[in-house]
Design a protein around this nucleic acid. Structure first.
Lengths: 182, 182
DNA sequence: ACTGGCATGTAATTTGTTACATGATTGT
DNA sequence: ACAATCATGTAACAAATTACATGCCAGT
């Protein structure tokens, strides 16, 4: 699934600008699901407009740059539904953090500990944003709560595991009694 | 982190062919951490050899195509450690499954249920492979057990959540009392 | 007969990122 | 003063996938 399709999907929830779509990837329901840069979002929206899957309307603002608000067309909606119904690919993950942990025996212990702290902080942030999204009145649909809940469950499991088992990985911790499976 | 660096890392655990590296992405510790196709692995190894970060040796086989066995050089090892120590990027996820769940209200219920079944099956498979890897005598290093345990914790959380909450998402389930947070 | 595993590699194409370019406003 | 937020867009580049090309062996 390419970014064009994802943008199309976002627009089924309502109008949005390229800028707002980017923010959705960072903050909202889509955190941990998808991500894209401006450099791919803007061209994607342009191409979708060329294919009549979305339409845009320019909105002037006072003291702010003009907005280009995109809305999905009936054809766009049909296209999106068809592409999602046609099948999905397995999740694709690229975790540099896990890489670092796999090779932790080659790294300075301080580096490893810093990476774990960083990763924990990122996860706690993501969790907080997800909880906020979950409480949002616009997110009360059952399927959205399911998607958010799944992300939340994963984040909680990761955080709990790292908190309970990080002692396994430090040289000091390795000398202690090894932590059990839970 | 590009595939070149990942291949270099894998080779710190011992010699391997391009084909074996690909299998590691599917089966072993690296499942759910990284993935790459042959089309990127082979060129990566070629370029690493040009930069003297790895060396290769051809091995003839009876009734099988010849192998090209790669080994990391001291320079390669230093290069890998330096690049991992220099910092890591946040995890990047691209989950078409989560996308499908977010837009489940637009899809036929049978499709949604099929996707959940598929995803559950993939997760159970991945979990079984991870458990096998975890038990492998070559994986007893504390940091490997940490990395494997983290993956395992995530998979278990996802599986449990989907099993307990999948009724939220079906139209029938939506009519029942909503499932609680756990 | 055919599918799948073993094994490597190239080329065309797709996809997406990073960096650049512009510019006003608001908060510190 | 300076950074951040808002807002769009392009161009150069990097990265990676897909499809193609080859070929034997083992199992069904």
């Amino acid at each position: 699934m390419d970014i064009k399709t994802v943008c199309l999907g976002l627009l089924t929830f309502g109008e949005a600008t390229g800028y707002e779509i980017k923010k959705l990837f960072e903050d909202g329901t889509f955190n941990g699901v998808f991500d894209a840069s401006f450099g791919s979002i803007y061209p994607a929206l342009t191409r979708l407009a060329e294919e009549d899957l979305v339409v845009s309307r320019e909105e002037e603002q006072h003291g702010r740059p003009d907005k280009k608000v995109y809305a999905i067309t009936p054809r766009g909606r049909a296209h999106f539904i068809a592409s999602l119904t046609a099948g999905i690919q397995p999740d694709r993950v690229r975790s540099e953090f896990s890489m670092a942990m796999i090779f932790a025996h080659l790294l300075p212990d301080a580096t490893v500990q810093t990476y774990i702290d960083q990763h924990l902080a990122e996860h706690r942030d993501a969790l907080a944003r997800l909880e906020a999204t979950s409480a949002d009145p616009g997110s009360q649909m059952a399927n959205l709560q399911f998607a958010i809940g799944l992300g939340r469950a994963r984040l909680l499991a990761s955080i709990a595991f790292m908190e309970h088992h990080r002692n396994m990985i430090s040289p000091d911790g390795a000398a202690l009694a090894p932590a059990g499976r839970d």
